[in-house]
Simulated assay, not measured.
Amino acid sequence: MKMINWKAAVIAGGVAGVVSGLVKLGWENVLPPRTPKRDQTNPPQKLLQQFGVPEKVTHATYTYSEQQLPWVSYLIHFGFSTSFAVFYSVAGHFVPFIRLGQGTLFGLGVWGACHLGVMPAMGTVPAPVDQPVEEHFSEALGHMAWMWTNHIISDELYRQLTSK
Rank of each mutant, 00 (worst) to 15 (best):
V15I: 13
Y62T: 15
E134I: 11
M3G: 08
P120C: 07
F97E: 10
W6Q: 08
H93P: 03
H143K: 01
P36G: 09
W146P: 15
Q49E: 13
P43I: 06
T35C: 04
D155A: 06
F137K: 02
G13V: 13
E55Y: 02
T61W: 00
T149D: 11
F106V: 13
F80I: 15
V129K: 07
A9G: 05
S154T: 12
P33N: 02
L48N: 01
V23E: 03
L141W: 07
V10F: 12
V30L: 11
E135G: 12
I98H: 02
T162A: 05
P43E: 08
I98K: 00
L31Y: 14
M3W: 04
P96Q: 03
Y74L: 14
W148A: 09
V133Y: 09
G109T: 15
S81L: 00
T149W: 05
D130M: 07
N150Q: 14
A140R: 01
A8I: 14
H93I: 11
Y88L: 13
G26A: 10
T149S: 13
T124A: 12
G17S: 05
T82C: 10
P43H: 02
H77N: 06
P36F: 04
T124V: 15
Q68R: 00
Q50H: 04
P32S: 12
V110L: 14
N150W: 07
V95I: 15
V18L: 12
A85R: 01
Y64K: 06
H151L: 05
K2E: 14
A145P: 12
G112Y: 04
Q49A: 09
G92T: 09
V10H: 05
T162V: 15
W71V: 15
M147H: 12
H93R: 03
F78A: 08
Y88P: 14
F137A: 14
G26P: 07
L161Q: 05
L141D: 09
E66N: 12
I76T: 07
M147R: 04
A145L: 13
N29H: 10
H59P: 01
R99A: 04
E139Y: 03
N150R: 00
D130E: 15
A113F: 15
T35L: 04
G101D: 12
P33W: 02
A121P: 02
H93Q: 10
I152K: 05
V18D: 08
R34H: 06
W71Y: 12
L108S: 08
A91R: 07
D155R: 02
P120T: 07
W111M: 10
P96G: 09
F84W: 15
P132R: 02
Q131L: 15
S81F: 00
F78P: 10
N29W: 05
G123I: 11
P132E: 13
V53W: 01
A8R: 05
Q160A: 13
V133A: 12
I4P: 02
K56F: 10
L116K: 06
D155Q: 08
T35R: 00
E55D: 11
F137C: 11
P54G: 03
N29E: 15
T104R: 02
A9K: 01
P126Y: 05
S163W: 08
P120R: 00
